[in-house]
Design a protein around this nucleic acid. Structure first.
Ligand code: MN
Ligand code: MN
Ligand code: MN
Ligand code: MN
Lengths: 216, 216
DNA sequence: TAATATTTTTAGACTTGTCTAAAAATACAA
DNA sequence: TTGTATTTTTAGACAAGTCTAAAAATATTA
């Protein structure tokens, strides 16, 4: 239906739209590690196909049709990640690149059967919600640890940084999804956070606190 | 590692090599539903990369390197087909097109884990042997029904035509893999074959007998 | 063996998606 | 508000893969 490049652009625009309403050419170029001029070319094509709203120099947003395509790609990505972790026993830091390829397998019947095979999981291995076959899913209501108050208590439920380096660090510290933690102290000097977990104390940096999400 | 187009050409050349040692430009063009001139262009690239032996006007054969790539693609194709039928409960006539896309997912670690997950199956849903992770597999020793003698008895074990139409016809007649049949009579006039199966008689045309394989 | 038919290759063009360099538009700041 | 910095678009080129039309090589047949 859509080319690999088109799908990747739509996904990138969708992701950037979660932060700011309107997405700029340079933001898309950075997200896809390409050049602004290439982005402009593709934006004209996507606008032509009514997948984005685009006026020169004004940035873009997805149309309803474009958003539907993007959400479907995200559904595929997250279901394949779930499959790789739950069925093939890959670690959560190993699956993203494979899913980047698998998300472009076009059959929706396949993805719906995969969903059923796995029991309709609601979140992927990184805590991100998986859209259902109609594209419905709850927006993430998780909060970065850096944004909660001292004495707050919650369950580790997601990450904002999906890099291997970060995920491996978390695993090593035992900071995995499902763990209950309490924020004991926030150091004013460098915004480091001291957590209590399994009745032990653990200090994490501001960067880590920013990228680790909890459900209160 | 290799582009989608390169992989598809190598697979096509491999398939045609099973029939005749040397493969012609026109044969490849027919197999891939493309034009001879396009094939020539690609043959130069593949020869450049040492994946095929090619001299102008003389046809091509795979090098060892090329054969290794081709067998690996076939391994992926057949394992995904097995997955789709055994785990996602697709019918054997529904899986080929999906597998055509999935065979290009590049991770070998993924395919090895998929293989393990399914218990290292030896044949795909159409009876074709699945190469192991080193590329070893038994060449098909199956015979078309049209080539065996009257009173021969065997197990339906594979097909030569993988089209939906043929597979659906077989299913409807109950001619599925694993069934035991006996060749009762071969009609001299049109080479139709009368089979005995489940102690009932069943007539199939020469075309069907040509494309249905049994293990004696 | 010479003429003809078929196959294969070359030449040149097109599409998709990318790039660099330069021009145009917009944003920011004195 | 005018000049400068930044962002975005345009212009032109390139690589991969495909096509049509024509030329070259090979095969067939009289
Ligand atoms: Mn991912
Ligand atoms: Mn994920
Ligand atoms: Mn197949
Ligand atoms: Mn098959």
């Amino acid at each position: 239906m859509y080319t690999l490049a088109e799908e990747n652009y739509l996904k990138a625009i969708y992701k950037l739209s979660l932060i700011a309403e309107n997405v700029s050419t340079n933001q898309i170029a950075a997200e896809l590690a390409t050049k602004a001029s290439s982005v402009t070319d593709m934006l004209r094509k996507l606008a032509e196909k009514l997948l984005i709203n685009y006026t020169r120099y004004q940035g873009v947003s997805l149309t309803q049709a474009g958003e539907k395509v993007a959400v479907n790609i995200i559904r595929r990505h997250r279901l394949w990640e779930y499959f790789l972790v739950e069925k093939l026993h890959f670690k959560w830091d190993e699956v993203h690149e494979m899913a980047e390829e698998m998300e472009h397998i076009s059959s929706n019947e396949l993805i719906d059967r995969l969903d059923e095979f796995m029991g309709f999981p609601s979140r992927d291995p990184h805590g991100d919600p998986i859209p259902d076959s109609k594209g419905n899913f709850k927006k993430n209501d998780l909060k970065p640890i850096s944004s909660v108050d001292v004495n707050a208590c919650g369950i580790i439920s997601g990450v904002r940084d999906h890099s291997s380096a970060f995920l491996q660090y978390l695993e090593k510290q035992g900071l995995i999804i499902g763990k209950k933690i309490t924020v004991k102290e926030i150091i004013t000097y460098d915004s480091a956070v001291i957590l209590q977990m399994d009745s032990k104390d653990l200090q994490i940096s501001r960067d880590v606190a920013n990228n680790l999400l909890i459900a209160l």
